[in-house]
Nucleic acid binder design. Sequence first.
DNA 1: CATGAATGAGACTTCATTCAT
DNA 2: CATGAATGAAGTCTCATTCAT
Lengths: 212, 212, 212, 212
Amino acid sequence: MSARLNDTEACDPKDRGQQQRERILYAAKRCFIDNGFHAASMANIAETAGISAGLIYRYFESKSAIVQAIIEGQLVERQESIASLQSEQDLAERLQELYRAWRDGDASVMNAALFLEMTAEATRDERIAAALANADRSCGDQFMAWVRKRAGARAAFVDEHSLRVRELVLLAFIEGLAVRAVREPDYDPELVAAAIRCVTETLLDVDSRSAA
Amino acid sequence: MSARLNDTEACDPKDRGQQQRERILYAAKRCFIDNGFHAASMANIAETAGISAGLIYRYFESKSAIVQAIIEGQLVERQESIASLQSEQDLAERLQELYRAWRDGDASVMNAALFLEMTAEATRDERIAAALANADRSCGDQFMAWVRKRAGARAAFVDEHSLRVRELVLLAFIEGLAVRAVREPDYDPELVAAAIRCVTETLLDVDSRSAA
Amino acid sequence: MSARLNDTEACDPKDRGQQQRERILYAAKRCFIDNGFHAASMANIAETAGISAGLIYRYFESKSAIVQAIIEGQLVERQESIASLQSEQDLAERLQELYRAWRDGDASVMNAALFLEMTAEATRDERIAAALANADRSCGDQFMAWVRKRAGARAAFVDEHSLRVRELVLLAFIEGLAVRAVREPDYDPELVAAAIRCVTETLLDVDSRSAA
Amino acid sequence: MSARLNDTEACDPKDRGQQQRERILYAAKRCFIDNGFHAASMANIAETAGISAGLIYRYFESKSAIVQAIIEGQLVERQESIASLQSEQDLAERLQELYRAWRDGDASVMNAALFLEMTAEATRDERIAAALANADRSCGDQFMAWVRKRAGARAAFVDEHSLRVRELVLLAFIEGLAVRAVREPDYDPELVAAAIRCVTETLLDVDSRSAA
DNA sequence: CATGAATGAGACTTCATTCAT
DNA sequence: CATGAATGAAGTCTCATTCAT
């Protein structure tokens, strides 16, 4: 537990708590990914974080509070990602990145299995459901604003209903990729790229499809 | 589950065991849907099936063996569903039905949350992963055969790669609907219908898109 | 664990469950008396009962359910005791018996410390409060009926309000004896007997005091 | 707890510790009353006292040491209360006040549930038992002296034994009121007042009852 | 074939107490 | 003198699984 290595770094005492929170969150993410949401025990998480089990409760009210924090953290990441979105091609590239992250299960980003489990857990835990719904709505709105802006840049008109349909299709497709990443981890990357292009091009082709 | 047979009625002694298995599987499906995969206890399942807890172990080695059996059962259902597929419009209608079943948790089909949980579980349980991959591949092939047949019926040509892309897009979209059904259960049905039409029309519009 | 000694006696299989319930209740009473209500753990009770901790939950929903069962058991005892009450002298004798049982802490009857702790617990556990209130009301009514009957036997009239006052005084006095039994276990028995006579005689002296 | 002194103000340095002790004791009493003896945590008490949890251990050896200190403090209060007792009517009034405090949980005096819990705890903790016995005896003697003085004032003779009986009856009745206050918090105040009058009048009616 | 009582491990969570700062 | 982060033991309760009947 030397201070220099993976510990507190003994500087800036005021946000020591924040560091602990993050340490716990990171450990929890790893455990959830490795063992599944229910199989990962608090003792498990504590050990991974290198602290005692009871201490977690100084920073999080309950196991479910940890999940909520993870969801909210991801919300921020997603928002930043959308905010920095440029062209339509950029969107396609981002989706490919996302797919790779999902498939490879990097603990620092969202992992597909974890994403699915959290979604399923929302069915049974109201607080998780609320956190997810909030994140979805927030990102959805932000994304639609982006689409509108892009359309406006090309002087194209896009009616509200059509916009909503596109959002749903794109969202379902993206989330479906999470399922695909888990169930069939060995797709040819080119195939996935083509599928992503197929969807993004169709959906953002504002003019030809606005009558759908 | 006919009313006549819900006890030990001595007809057809050879597949008495098979009847018990199915009775257990049906009960398990109901419990998993209602309570979630981990929250459903063996006692729960036994009670739902109207038998004792210990008896389950005569027919299934463990709880996870039940899950596998359910997955394999679903494979059969899906194959039958695809086999009976007719026109393109029929496909869209089927998808809408599927979405409704997912959202409402019809016990006869699979429920969305359960679908997601099983998918996530595949990350941790090799046998479940194998069962799922097998089911996916089998259904995928069958579905592609259907598309080819439909195209042939209209004398349209469709190259292999394009076909695979479409399959992936459609599959991801369908599975994404499961996520949507869980995370946003209050979509306007019309919106979902429009999204489904949007995808099926685009994907099955063989001629105009074969170059994509 | 031989069957003949302190076990199931292997007869009458239908109320095996009832025997287990009683075995647990008896063990719980002992533990509560010895260690206090909160300090007595379920593991403690289980060990005393000679079973595993988890098994208790087949017979009682929770720790608090055990307390409720104890309370209800005592209600029955109290009712039977009141029902068999004869003359006024009999009442005084019964109270002396009760005091002795309280002071000596026989686990089979009510123990004073346990009585007080349960009363205190009622402040924090609604279900216990309800069970106690129910028992009190039931016994109170029964007791007042007895007083009325005794008065009628002597052709004495006793008005309702005066009756209620007496009931309260007697009840408080009895319950206060529980406190006394715990806080000063070494009273001269004659002193207690005199105090009991003092109260019972005063209270049941219908004629001279009915104007009070 | 004057508003001026709620921090480290350096006046009168010698009994700074005493102030802290009292602050902690007051907080503990509040917590015990609100949450019960076992449910009140040290963290709870510390927060109520406005200090850190660790600091409590500079002033009290353990949680149970706090309880003892509270009991000893109550002894002083009770003695003062008895010392200021005037006429027989005054006694009745005091008892009504006490009953109200019992029932309503006034933090300045003791609350009934807490009183019962501490009494029960005496069964298991010798030091608490000793503190309680000591307090009871001391107050009892003081009370009997008061009765003798009142009797003497009216030139009435009262023999020792009769005096002891009265003391026991009154004490049991008072303590029984604590039980009543917890188990039946909704008594008509008039009923309680009548019961108290009934007891005090009977017991202090030196002449007519001295033969009992 | 069938039961369901019994087990034992392990889940989440709380809390009195200590100790580096 | 004071803090509050940290621990570790213990608490209640659940549940997959076994086995005597």
